[in-house]
Every structure is written in structure tokens, then in C-alpha cells.
Simulated assay, not measured.
Amino acid sequence: MAEQDQSPVFQIQRIYLKDLSLEQPNSPQVLLEQTQPAVDIQLSMSAEAVAQSLFEVTVTATVTTKVGERVLFLVEAKQAGIFEIRNVPAEQQQGILGVVCPQMLYPYLRAIVSDVCTRAGFPPILLAEVNFQAMFEAQQQAQLAQAASANGAPN
């Protein structure tokens, strides 16, 4: 029995929409626009412990569409999940939180953003696939470089 207590555990406790915002500051005039808008998509991810062995991971998409300087619409969606992770080494835990969990949440986020755009009267915005592994590795390298420069900086 004691061996089972030490076996690694990774499970989804809950997946939910944490926040959703739609702004159309120039409606109804922008609904008549025939010009192709510029679309800016920003993605971010966060993870934090919420209880012992429980972590909340959030993937956020901010989509801004403009014609010139006028905003047609802005959508911000935060898809979150609570994950149980126990008896996993810290370095593996970081990979699970930074890669595996966001990959599980992202399809929900993509669907929400597309649906909100359509319901707002615009063509759907289809978020491209994301390589969370590459994002995680780039973030780790940036942290290592920052730590190295901080340690090498003269006082």
C-alpha cells in the first residue's frame, strides 16, 4: 500500500472558462467596414499552486482587430484548469505545468475565441496551433540567461 501512495499522479480536476471579455468600442459603424482588419493575437500562460498538489493553469488569448487606428473588436479569453500533480519530481512538474496542461486547455480556448467573434457579428478568428514545448523551452532559456547576467553583473 505504501508504494501506491508514492506513485506519480496527474489528473484533471476541472476545466473552466475563467474570464471572457468582448469590446466593440466603435459599433455599429465598424460592422459596416469592408476593409480587411489587422489582427493582433497575444498568448500567455500562467500556473500557480492553489492547494497542496493542486495547481491552476491559465492560458490567455487577447485578440485585437483594427482598421487603421480604429478598434473593430477586442476579445480576451482566459481558459483555466485545476490539475492534481503528486509525487512528480520538480523538474518534471514544471514541464507538465508549462507544456502538458496548456496543451489540454488550448483547444477549449480556440473554440471560445472563434465562437465569441462569430456571435459578435465578425468572421471567426481561428487561433493557430501552438508549440507549448518550444514556448516552455524558450522561457527557460530566457530565465537562465537573465540569472546568468544577474550573477555576472558587477555590483
Results as ranks from 00 to 15, higher is better:
V100T: 10
Q103M: 12
P124Y: 01
Q140M: 15
Q92K: 09
I85G: 09
I112C: 11
Q139W: 13
F83I: 00
E76M: 14
I85N: 06
V75M: 12
I125Y: 09
L126A: 05
Y108K: 06
L97K: 00
V113K: 05
A128N: 14
A120R: 07
Q140H: 12
V75G: 04
F132K: 08
I125R: 06
Q140Y: 11
D115M: 07
I125C: 07
I85C: 10
A77V: 15
L97I: 03
Q143W: 14
Y106D: 10
F83E: 01
V113Q: 02
L127Q: 09
L97M: 04
R86F: 00
K78T: 01
A77C: 13
E91L: 00
I112E: 11
V75I: 15
Q79L: 00
A142Y: 13
I82Y: 04
Q141D: 13
Q143T: 10
P89W: 09
Q139M: 13
Q93M: 15
Q143R: 15
V100R: 05
N87A: 07
A111N: 14
N131K: 03
F132M: 09
Q94T: 08
R110V: 04
F83T: 01
K78F: 01
Q92L: 15
G81Q: 10
G81Y: 05
P124I: 02
I85L: 12
A77T: 15
E91W: 00
A120L: 14
A80M: 11
M135H: 06
L126F: 11
L126N: 07
A77I: 13
G95E: 13
V99W: 03
P107K: 02
I125D: 03
A77S: 12
T118R: 07
Q94D: 13
R86D: 01
E137G: 04
N87E: 11
T118M: 04
P124Q: 06
P102M: 04
E84I: 02
A80S: 15
R86Y: 02
L97C: 06
P124K: 03
R119E: 05
Q79P: 13
V88K: 00
D115Q: 12
A120T: 08
Q94G: 14
Q140L: 15
V116M: 08
A120P: 07
Q94W: 04
P89A: 08
Q139N: 14
I85Q: 05
Q139K: 15
V75K: 05
A138K: 12
Q139C: 05
F83N: 00
C117T: 02
R110S: 06
V75T: 14
G95R: 13
P102I: 03
V100D: 02
F132S: 07
A111L: 03
P102Y: 04
V113M: 08
A120K: 09
E91C: 00
E137Q: 14
V130E: 08
V88H: 01
E76K: 15
I85A: 08
R86V: 00
Q141H: 15
F122A: 03
I96W: 05
A128T: 08
N87T: 04
F122K: 01
A142G: 10
N131F: 00
Q133H: 12
R86S: 03
A142D: 14
I125A: 06
E84N: 14
G81I: 02
P124D: 06
L109N: 09
G121I: 11
C117Q: 01
Q133L: 12
V99L: 02
C101A: 13
Q143C: 10
A138V: 11
E84T: 07
G98Q: 11
D115K: 09
A142F: 14
V75N: 13
P107R: 04
L109H: 09
N87R: 04
S114M: 00
Y108M: 05
